[in-house]
Design a protein around this nucleic acid. Structure first.
Length: 660
RNA sequence: GCGCUCGUAGCUCAAUUGGAUAGAGCGUCGGACUACGAAUCCGAAGGUUGCAGGUUCGACUCCUGCCGGGCGCACCA
């Protein structure tokens, strides 16, 4: 079932094509800005009047002459400078509502179509560093990433969730070193249920004890070289840490599974090869020098790179293949302006230089992919991960299940905080320079997206910390949310059993935290103030859950009513408003997916609940009197219930409750 | 210094990406429970969209310059 807005857009495009030629066809159809103007509006006439040299209202008239919408809308009206306003026919609205409510299969999608062009989408989110307990810094990536993958999945895209955990970094050296010491003293593996305390102890020793610090660094090397004892200790710490993060994921209701986890350790064996390949492919410099780098103006970042013909690059790379040539380019001979991507050793580190990036002294800023001491960094891991996701044969020993087939990603979405924007920009540019984003078969390009988000701030407007200045642990935060919700549940609905109350408190409390995060445009910062987060009034999670629970309550009272063949009458304005809003749900999902902005869905659901409340106040359902009206209103309840359930639970990952 | 980002009602945020008279919630004030759940609803007050220009039928949105906040900028992630 195609969405109504899309349908009107298509018909308008058709009419514009007929009236003025296909080259003018794209039509600007959006939902009406004001209910007075109807349900949808076409803004094409004004835009077209310039290119056509006709008055906009005349253009609008011509469009309407060729427009065939008699099966859906009342006669279109031209208004203002040249808006064409559409109002859906009452009968059409009723018919669509009936069609959605008709059977469980249609109800389960509430009119949301599957995407006509299914894509394979990798969503990289959560990604905690598992040497420490998860804290608020991980919250947004978890919540937003999960919502984005749910939305895309509901559109029938093939979503591959990836939890890129930090499980192989330098901190593990300390942890291994400390574990080894405790094991030697006590004969036992250290108890690390309290991961943070253990981490702190190791960090303190690392600061204060030179020998410890040195041995910790050695432990990292041993780990990376696969030395059995180090690996065994790492494995123990890793398992314990993962138990912790799995618990948090479960509390948050994330759809991530252990199968979705490929962390730094997974890519560790690939790092050397990745650096080698990049250094080889992007090698350039020395004799070729600036001449070879000239000729391509890349004032803007990234996008320009794809225009570099591969032959050019190969030629440039081939011009200087010797290690000596690489060395010659170091430092002093770096060009002032980088005009094309290239790799070379600078100050002992293997670097990729890309157009458009400069440091404080306006000198070219590198993406370092291997440190002077030979160690790899997160840029290396990210590049290895992207190569794995885009071009690597997935039939590797570690990864035979469950995704043994080639992923052939069409999009890779990173849900990480905005401070990493430059990092990802450089990593993506490097991938493009390597042409890993070109599908080997189709020749199409992969969309690399950083779906960034702002910081969570404390009430003081500074980064959210505890009073003692430590990061707030996620487990404690979710526990507090649940406790605060429990108080309200006990007060509002004391008749529920304690077990039931506990369950509801968790869904309400954690749902409130998730909703508070999702309802805001992800690109901005927001303040975490408990009173606001856990408030049950206004645009909040509990408000929406409450609306859902009230609908469920109606159906409980109604008993086993059969709505087969029932008609939607829609006589009251409140019924009309609710029904028309329900039909807009598919378009909201569409734009939320297009922009990767879950808050569009939040805003919509909140407004829908407002309309439902108005309907609920003015239109008695079960006490309506005649059976036809009861059934008609029950259909509206049924579809509203479905939209809320899909929106909250399936798309946003916020649980709905039959009662609360 | 360079780059990114934000600045909208007292407070917290929207505004379908260039559309019509800039909308909500909280707070304030005033109303509605012998009607399906009052965790609700209805009403009122509250604005020179940081400032100044520009682009055009039309600007919170785009371009330029200021002012103010946040973040990033060579071997941490």
């Amino acid at each position: 079932m195609i969405s109504i807005e899309a349908q009107i857009r298509q018909r308008c495009a058709l009419a514009i094509g007929k009236a003025f030629g296909a080259e003018h066809a794209p039509s600007a159809v959006v939902k009406a800005g004001d209910p007075r103007f109807g349900d949808y509006q076409c803004n094409s006439a004004m835009a077209l009047s310039g290119t056509l040299g006709l008055p906009p209202r005349q253009v609008a008239t011509r469009i309407i002459e060729h427009l065939d919408l008699a099966d859906m809308c009342e006669t279109p009206v031209i208004a203002g400078p040249g808006f064409i306003n559409f109002k859906l026919q009452s009968g059409f609205v009723a018919q669509r509502i009936e069609a959605i409510a008709a059977e469980s299969a249609t109800l389960a999608r509430a009119g949301v179509p599957e995407s006509p062009h299914r894509q394979t989408v990798v969503v990289d989110y959560a990604g905690p560093n598992i040497a420490k307990e998860m804290h608020v810094g991980h919250l947004r990536s978890c919540i937003i990433g999960d919502a984005i993958s749910r939305i895309m999945e509901f559109q029938a895209h093939r979503v591959i969730r990836q939890n890129h955990v930090g499980d192989f970094g330098t901190q593990f050296g300390m942890l291994i070193r400390l574990a080894r010491e405790i094991q030697m003293q006590t004969g036992d593996f250290p108890p690390i249920e309290d991961l943070d305390a253990y981490y702190k102890q190791a960090a303190q020793r690392d600061r204060e004890d030179e020998n410890f610090a040195r041995e910790a660094r050695e432990a990292v090397v041993a780990l990376q070289n696969g030395e059995p004892q180090a690996v065994a200790l790492w494995r123990r710490i890793y398992d314990e840490s993962r138990r912790h993060s799995a618990e948090i994921f479960q509390l948050l209701g994330l759809k991530l599974t252990p199968h979705d986890e490929r962390g730094e350790s997974f890519y560790a064996p690939r790092l050397f090869g990745v650096v080698e390949q990049i250094a080889e492919t992007l090698r350039i410099g020395g004799d070729g020098g600036d001449t070879a780098l000239d000729g391509i103006d890349t004032t803007s970042k990234g996008a320009e790179l794809t225009t570099t013909p591969p032959e050019d690059r190969a030629e440039a790379a081939g011009a200087l293949a010797s290690p000596q040539a690489l060395e010659r380019l170091s430092d002093a001979q770096l060009p002032d302006v980088v005009r094309r991507p290239f790799a070379c050793v600078s100050a002992g580190a293997m670097c990729v230089f890309l157009p458009g990036y400069v440091d404080k002294e306006k000198k070219p800023l590198p993406l370092i992919i291997q440190k002077a001491d030979g160690a790899f960094l997160y840029a290396t891991t990210d590049l290895a991960a992207l190569r794995f996701r885009l071009v690597e044969d997935k039939l590797t020993p570690e990864d035979q299940k469950p995704l043994h087939e080639s992923w052939l990603a069409d999009r890779v979405i990173y849900t990480t905080d905005a401070r990493q924007a430059q990092h990802f920009s450089m990593v993506f540019d490097t991938v493009r320079a390597m042409r890993w984003h070109i599908h080997s078969q189709s020749g199409g390009t992969v969309d690399l997206v950083h779906a960034s988000f702002g910081s969570i701030l404390g009430p003081d407007g500074k980064p959210f910390k505890t009073r003692s200045g430590e990061s707030v642990k996620l487990k404690a935060l979710l526990l507090e949310a649940t406790e605060r919700a429990a108080k309200v549940v006990a007060e509002k609905n004391p008749s529920l059993s304690p077990d039931r109350q506990k369950l509801i408190a968790a869904a309400v409390g954690i749902g409130a935290v998730k909703y508070a995060d999702l309802k805001q445009d992800r690109t901005g910062d927001y303040e975490f103030v408990w009173e606001r987060i856990i408030s049950f009034e206004g645009n909040t999670g509990p408000y929406l859950q409450y609306a859902y629970a009230r609908i469920c309550s109606i159906f409980r009272k109604a008993g086993g009513i059969d709505l087969t063949g029932a008609r939607a009458a829609l006589v009251e304005p409140a019924e009309q408003n609710l029904a028309r809003s329900l039909l807009k749900f598919p378009d909201i999902v569409e734009i939320a997916a297009r922009d990767l902005k879950p808050h569009y869905i939040c805003t919509y659901l909140y407004e829908l609940c407002g309309l439902f409340s108005a309907f609920y106040e003015k239109c008695p359902v079960l006490k309506a009197g005649d059976a036809a009206t009861v059934n008609s209103r029950l259909i509206l309840c049924r579809v509203t219930q479905a939209v809320l359930k899909i929106g909250l639970q399936e798309l946003l990952g916020i649980p709905v409750l039959d009662e609360m």
